[in-house]
């Protein structure tokens, strides 16, 4: 039963066939010493080499830690601020333009400023991830609160609930699906920004290993790491789908399948 549910989250396994075919052709066609397109077997050797040197494990761990810490901070920040802005119409009016402007800033441009402010520290890294990924969460939360019908709040008022109880029993649960929609966007954004910051700043992680490989013209290592990152991102998205599915099992199913 549980396994079936998990299997439903995955695209049909037949979809792996084109990928396998491309890799196979690549393996057969690419010259063994190709500097730009090394055959997949060489990626494997390169990754094995990194593992043997004890470099890959800690790098993956560092990247995952930064990703998780940044995303968690973004969730806390985005949800709290989103609720606040959502329930206070005055605040929504006064911050609307500012939020749209700040959100439109591309994530990479805040990295130099963050380095100036916080230095080359893990705190800076997590700060940048949190700052850039909080936006989709915040804006979705605001939209979620705005979508709550007056009637839903009237139900609470008519039962003479104090506003704190109305927040906990009505506003927060009603906003949860929109919040999770924001987190879904934030997950993929957080992976991008985590690697980006590692590449930019040379702080430890998979991003640094990739840049190092590129600087040493070790294309096999870069391709190998690309595959690792792909797998990692795939697993993280899958894990998120699982969590979201569990949390939202009590909510009405979403109308649009693509949401």
């Amino acid at each position: 039963m549980k396994f079936k549910r998990l299997a439903q989250l995955l695209p049909p396994p037949v979809g792996l066939l084109p990928l396998a075919a491309v890799l196979l052709v690549w393996q057969c066609v690419a010259p063994d010493e190709s500097p730009s397109f090394p055959p997949p077997s060489n990626w494997w050797t390169a990754i094995r080499g990194l593992t043997a040197d004890g470099l890959l494990g800690p790098a993956v761990l560092a990247t995952l830690q930064n990703f998780a810490a940044g995303l968690l901070a973004a969730c806390a920040l985005g949800f709290t601020l989103g609720l606040l802005i959502g329930v206070l119409p005055g605040l929504r009016r006064w911050t609307g333009m500012l939020l749209e402007y700040l959100r439109a800033l591309p994530p990479p441009v805040v990295v130099p400023i963050a380095i100036l402010m916080l230095g080359f520290s893990p705190g800076m890294q997590i700060g940048v991830i949190a700052y850039t990924t909080a936006w989709p969460i915040l804006l979705n939360t605001v939209a979620g609160v705005a979508a709550i019908r007056e009637l839903q709040l009237d139900v609470g008022r008519s039962m003479r609930m104090p506003w704190t109880v109305r927040m906990i029993k009505i506003v927060i649960p009603a906003t949860l699906p929109a919040f999770l929609l924001g987190v879904r966007v934030a997950v993929s954004l957080a992976i991008v920004v985590t690697l980006l910051v590692e590449m930019f700043t040379g702080l430890p992680g998979i991003g640094l290993l990739m840049v190092t490989g590129q600087r040493n013209f070790n294309s096999s290592q870069v391709f190998g790491l690309l595959a690792v990152v792909g797998l990692l991102a795939f697993c993280l998205t899958l894990a998120f789908n699982l969590i979201e599915g569990l949390v939202l099992s009590r909510w009405p199913p979403r109308r649009s399948a693509g949401a």
Binding site: R149, L151, Q152, D154, V155, R157, S158, M159, R160, K169, I170, P173, A174, L176, R250, W251, P252
Partner: peptide, 20 residues
């Protein structure tokens, strides 16, 4: 404001019930 002992049944049950 709302009084004790008064209960309301709204027309729009879809929104009056907490769907979760």
């Amino acid at each position: 404001g709302p009084q004790d002992g008064v209960a309301i049944v709204f027309q729009d049950y879809g929104n009056a019930l907490l769907q979760w």
